[in-house]
């Protein structure tokens, strides 16, 4: 689509809501396992502004990963709607959905999900190849990104030859492969030592301020929480509270 036309469409349709890159409206997700029903999400609504840095907090099993799957287009809600750039993603055809997963969103999974049989750089190049980019261009770009996460010298290693922290950084690099607008990171610093953890936070911060990338992370990392614009609390499948880092600071001080 040429730029003018795109501009026109955007201006018309998004006069009011254009700030929201992701909108979740009363999203519910029930897992059925035979007789057992698990209500992982019981109606979560959230508006995320463009270039916002959002942290999601909540105890284990509260539905953070499920919520990420919903807003990232990896799973369909049992009820409720998810809009990405004002488009109801339930309406997307498989090509558009794949495009969205490939270019619009970069995922960092809680369990990394690196392809074990591929080297570090091949993992980073994989989303590029799905986007139709391959060969030297892809290799150069992958190398660039690996350098930014401090793994250039490990490019040819397999995930099994790396530490948890290093694997996590490969996962970060892979999420950035196609320059996504949105980064969804499920506990990205959980396995990192203090220094690399801070480097990743710095990287996210830069992505957000330099390139306007929207960052959403599930985390318990205080440093990460402090840098975020808003903190969303999920409890038992519901969003119980949305606060700013300053408010949270006060709460933590109150506890101590």
């Amino acid at each position: 689509m040429d730029n003018d036309l795109q501009q026109l469409l955007n201006d018309g349709a998004t006069a009011e809501k254009s700030g929201y890159v992701i909108r979740a409206v009363d999203v519910k997700r029930v897992y059925r396992n035979g007789e057992v029903e698990t209500h992982a999400l019981r109606g979560a609504s959230l508006d995320v502004k463009r270039a916002e840095y959002l942290s999601i907090m909540g105890p284990s099993g509260s539905g953070k990963t499920t919520f990420f799957n919903m807003i990232g287009g990896l799973d369909r809600p049992s009820s409720g709607k998810v809009y990405i750039d004002q488009v109801d993603i339930a309406q997307l055809d498989p090509y558009e959905l794949a495009w969205l997963r490939c270019r619009k969103v970069g995922y960092i999974f809680q369990s990394f999900n690196l392809i074990q049989v591929m080297s570090c750089i091949e993992n980073v190049m994989l989303p590029m190849s799905f986007a139709g980019v391959s060969g030297e261009d892809a290799r150069d770009k992958a190398m660039d990104i690996l350098e930014r996460v401090g793994l250039a010298d490990r490019a040819l290693h397999k995930p099994s030859e790396m530490s948890g922290g290093q694997q996590q950084r490969v996962a970060v690099a892979r999420a950035l492969a196609n320059s996504p607008d949105i980064v969804l990171a499920d506990e990205p610093t959980a396995n990192l030592d203090l220094k690399t953890g801070e480097e990743i936070i710095e990287l996210f911060w830069k992505l957000r301020s330099d390139l306007g990338v929207t960052i959403i992370t599930a985390t318990h990392d205080l440093k990460m929480l402090k840098r975020s614009d808003r903190i969303v609390w999920i409890e038992d499948g519901r969003i119980s509270k949305i606060s700013t880092p300053d408010e949270m600071q006060i709460q933590i001080e109150e506890v101590h």
């Binding site: 689509m1 795109q6 469409l9 955007n10 998004t14 254009s18 463009r50 990405i84 750039d85 488009v87 997307l92 055809d93 090509y95 558009e96 959905l97 794949a98 495009w99 969205l100 490939c102 270019r103 619009k104 190849s129 799905f130 986007a131 139709g132 391959s134 607008d181």
Partner: peptide, 18 residues
């Protein structure tokens, strides 16, 4: 703002390669 596009179909050669 970027609209949602359509994913490219990878040629058979790419599948073969992978």
């Amino acid at each position: 703002m970027e609209q949602i596009g359509k994913q490219v179909k990878l040629p058979l050669g790419r599948a073969l390669q992978i």
